[in-house]
Design a protein around this nucleic acid. Structure first.
Length: 877
RNA sequence: GGAGAAUUAGCUCAGCGGGAGAGCACUUCCUUGACGUGGAAGGGGUCGGCGGUUCGAACCCGUCAUUCUUCACCA
């Protein structure tokens, strides 16, 4: 055992702790153990780069839960892993190649994948290092990656399974096309933004007449794909025109006027151009009327030969030129400014093009229905906070089919093969035997398709009888942000129900986003991001973790405010120094030597142990409901106020005495409380608590695997609480008066205490030593029936009056003012209590114990009031 | 247009049916041997407005206001 430095040094404390834990296999789960399982799978970070503060928050919460469960005797498994993140990673590798002046098409698919794996290895290393820095208790022996063989097998199994059930199909639909990434996207990868665009009104001339129909559109360049003009069947303005043709102004092509319910008569001119290949609604209309579906754009967002002279131009350039040309031709009625919502790619931020294309889809109706229905059963997923369950349900009820094919290379290639000559399709776990006659589908699956399987694919599924899967699935709690409920949480739920017949996790704890000090989202473009590693460097992982996990309520966003991390550091420094005091006084005693059974404790000992009980109970209660902010508050108050400000100060008395027995008792209490503190704090601050624990324990075992503290009913002691509270009240009153008369604590004063009854007298007499130490009197008198003296300053506490005779010091005017203020407060209290008790409804309906408390309080206030009043009378004479 | 969240001390936020809390900031005092990254004592809030339920409301319900999220195929 060594002495601690007077200043907490987070870098020194945190160094080497991970190795200490790993050497003991502290975080390794064991399916053969008899302990009940508690499982968390990490939301796999993308291998695109470094972790940000949001990850730090998310993983800290999980670490808190898993460390608590581990200490509480569970076989705790926290499974780490990472996500290949198709589009995002491919974009990164593309960018890296571009720096070398290479395009992925130059090197081909195979070589590109090699480069991608290199990238993955590199960033996986970075991420593991960051996890270590954060102090996460992950079981690395079970680390997984979404492109691992086992997980890929799960992906194929699910794909083939859904296909065989008819829940996956391939078809030509309007999808969201990202012309920059040149891939299809799912609906939720499209971000709608309000954009000020224009509403272009064009003249579509009626064939064989000089009349025209006015057609409005926000995307003029798609007119080359128009195959009809639609009006509402009941719209009397146009019924006579149905069946006639109009001329597309851009190219002079004639198209029919059709009637369809889809058109709203009241909107715009009541005439809609129908472009089936470039608009989802038009696609439906086209299907109903058997219309053709010409595509007029290339995959990169330029116009194709269908656009005539605009062939090869970028869609927006083409739009501009087309409008100018039509204006010159007198075919534009007007151009209105128009604010409308435009879809942008989540990844590339370019405007997404609704585009006709052959893709793979997951049919959502049945899957969604099953998930929704399951939430009405006992087997439901428990959302915390609850309101997110509605978010989930509402989305599930309105979900469209999920486009899962992506025109990328980095990902799970779709297990479908096409026969080179017959065109026949084969979907299966394995390639067809005569592979040379087949070509595999070039596309890969949406990254979220594999992420959706994460809770079971990582645990060995679909291997039947896998020990991990048997023991650890369903997992217990998933922790993630509200921003990926749709992307991930919902998909895990329906895939899990479909393939394992179970929910993937019993609880899902949803947290918010980390924002900057001004409440803005952290983003690269704003440059307001904070690197968690920088914070750890400056304040330590313990401070960062505690800040992140105790400074918001569940589901709320969190602002990153450096001063708060700093104040957390101060808190740790406080803990450090309290520990320093304890260790210096233990004189070689360790927590294993403590035996408090049968000891007679001082009032301070009894009080702090009682407070410890309350703290443990409070923590356990709030932990159940994942209210870590409240847990933090229990810890903070207990440690800083009760333990440091009061108990340690009290403990100095016996520790500085010659009474060896008293010293031993005090050491034991100090050790008991400190041990409990580091245990309770450990999930939040694993590093510093491990450091301290190793200094007060003779065992080599890590605190990380020590047993969680339990409240000891033998330490519940209401009388000690009352007695000690009186001492605290007296001490505070004396300090207060000293401050009033500007008498520094070192200055000795006389203190007379008038005990109101024998019980108080006994208590105070027995604990005189504390009063002497804290109040530093030149004379201390504790008596029953002391009378008020004019020369003394007066304070009243429950059960006693305090008189401080300060010769020549008392400014009568000031004292009258002080006591008058006090009297006013007391009078208000008396009034409040009286009116409450005068209310018969209150006394009749409120719980009896509350009425009783109210009565007792009223008596107490009345007594105090009388004392102060009579003192005031004396002074005013 | 639908749904949700927020509105509490100067700032950032807890609390969510029985007498308003924390951190930072502010005032005064303190170089006492765990800690001046500290200690002691303070000041500061009609808990957004208005109704309602209740013996009792910051907390539950309704409504309005402001701010912020989300979802949605209105051409």
């Amino acid at each position: 055992m060594r002495n601690l430095a007077p200043k907490y040094n987070h870098q020194e404390v945190e160094a080497g702790k991970n190795k200490f834990w790993y050497d003991q296999d502290a975080f390794k789960a064991d399916p053969t153990s008899k302990k009940p399982a508690y499982t968390i799978v990490i939301p796999p970070p993308n291998v695109t780069g470094k972790l940000h503060l949001g990850h730090a928050w998310d993983t800290s919460l999980q670490d808190i839960i898993i460390r608590m469960k581990r200490m509480q005797g569970y076989d705790a498994l926290w499974l780490p892993g990472m996500d290949h993140a198709g589009i995002a990673t491919q974009a990164k590798v593309d960018a890296r190649l571009k720096e070398q002046g290479i395009s992925r098409y130059d090197i081909g698919r195979e070589k590109f994948l090699e480069k991608s794996w290199e990238w993955k290895e590199e960033y996986a290393g970075v991420i593991r290092q960051q996890w270590d820095k954060l102090g996460l208790s992950l079981d690395y022996s079970r680390e997984r990656f979404t492109l691992d063989e086992g997980l890929s097998e799960a992906v194929r199994k699910v794909f083939v399974g859904l296909y065989e059930k008819g829940l996956i199909y391939r078809g030509e639909r309007i999808i969201n096309w990202d012309p920059a990434a040149r891939t299809a996207l799912s609906d939720i990868e499209v971000i709608h933004k309000e954009i000020e665009g224009a509403f272009y009104h064009f003249k579509y001339q009626i064939e064989g007449s000089n009349d025209f129909l006015e057609v409005a559109t926000t995307r003029p360049e798609t007119m080359f794909g128009d195959v009809a003009i639609a009006v509402h069947p009941d719209d009397e303005r146009y019924t006579h025109l149905i069946g006639k043709n109009v001329i597309i102004p851009g190219n002079g092509v004639a198209i029919p006027i059709i009637a369809d319910d889809y058109v709203e008569m009241d909107f715009g001119t009541g005439v809609v151009k129908i472009t089936p290949a470039h608009d989802p609604n038009d696609f439906e209309v086209g299907n109903r009327h058997n219309l053709s579906r010409p595509v007029v754009m290339n995959l990169d967002g330029t116009m194709n030969e269908g656009a005539g002279k605009y062939n090869g131009l970028d869609r927006f350039v083409a739009r501009k030129q087309l409008v100018a040309d039509l204006q010159a031709a007198g075919l534009v009625v007007k151009i209105d400014k128009h604010v409308h919502s435009v879809g942008h790619s989540e990844r590339t931020d370019v405007v997404v093009e609704p585009y006709l294309s052959t893709q793979w889809f997951v049919k959502m109706e049945e899957l969604a229905k099953r998930s929704v229905e399951n939430q009405a059963t006992e087997n439901k997923v428990n959302f915390i906070p609850e309101r997110f369950e509605n978010t989930f349900l509402r989305w599930m009820e309105n979900v469209h089919d999920w486009c899962i094919s992506r025109q990328l290379w980095w990902g799970h290639q779709i297990p479908a093969w096409y026969h080179k000559t017959t065109g026949e399709m084969h979907v299966g776990m394995e390639a067809p035997a005569d592979l040379e006659n087949w070509t595999q589908d070039e596309d890969v699956l949406d990254t979220w398709f594999s992420s959706a399987l994460w809770p079971f694919s990582t645990l060995g599924w679909p291997d039947s009888g896998d020990a991990d899967f048997e023991k650890y699935f369903p997992t217990d709690t998933l922790v993630t942000g509200y921003d990926i409920i749709f992307f991930w949480v919902s998909r895990m739920i329906f895939q899990s129900l479909e393939f394992t017949e179970k929910v993937p996790f019993n609880n899902v704890l949803i947290h918010g986003l980390v924002r900057d000090a001004d409440g803005r989202k952290m983003s690269k473009s704003l440059g307001n991001g904070v690197d968690p590693m920088d914070v750890i460097e400056k304040y330590g992982a313990d401070a960062l973790r505690y800040f992140l996990t105790t400074n918001s309520a569940p589901g709320q966003d969190l602002r990153y405010i450096e001063e708060k991390v700093e104040s957390t550091w101060n808190f740790i420094n406080k803990i450090w120094n309290a520990s320093r005091f304890v260790i210096m006084n233990l004189d070689g005693m360790t927590v294993e030597d403590v035996d408090l059974t049968g000891r007679s404790l001082s009032v301070a000992d009894a009080w702090i142990l009682g407070r410890l009980n309350e703290t443990i109970r409070g923590i356990n209660r709030n932990t159940e409901s994942f209210e870590f902010g409240e847990v933090g508050r229990h810890l903070y108050n207990f440690i800083w106020d009760d333990f440091c400000s009061w108990y340690i100060e009290m403990a100095k008395l016996p520790m500085q005495s010659e009474d060896e027995a008293a010293k031993t008792f005090t050491r034991m209490v100090l050790a008991t409380v400190l041990e409990a503190i580091v245990k309770l704090l450990h999930p939040f601050m694993p590093f510093v608590t491990e450091e301290i624990y190793q200094m007060i324990s003779s065992s080599d075992k890590a605190l990380a695997v020590a047993a969680w503290p339990e409240a000891n009913p033998g330490f519940d002691n209401p009388k000690a609480v009352t007695d000690f509270s009186l001492l605290m009240d007296i001490i505070r009153s004396v300090r207060n008066i000293r401050a009033e008369v500007d008498a520094p604590n070192s200055k000795q004063i006389r203190i007379f205490i008038n005990a109101k009854n024998d019980e108080v007298l006994d208590n105070l007499t027995a604990n005189q030593a504390y009063l002497e130490r804290f109040c530093n009197p030149s004379e201390l008198r504790i008596e029953k029936g002391l009378t008020l003296s004019e020369e003394a300053m007066t304070a009243v506490v429950t059960g006693a009056d305090i008189l401080l005779p300060i010769e020549g010091l008392v400014n009568v005017e000031a004292e009258i003012a002080r006591l008058s203020a006090e009297l006013k407060k007391l009078s208000a209290e008396v009034k409040r209590g009286e009116s409450k008790l005068a209310n018969e409804k209150f006394t009749a309906k409120a719980p009896a114990h509350l009425v009783e408390e109210e009565r007792a309080k009223l008596e107490d206030y009345k007594e105090k009031f009388a004392t102060v009043e009579s003192k005031l009378k004396q002074l005013s004479k």
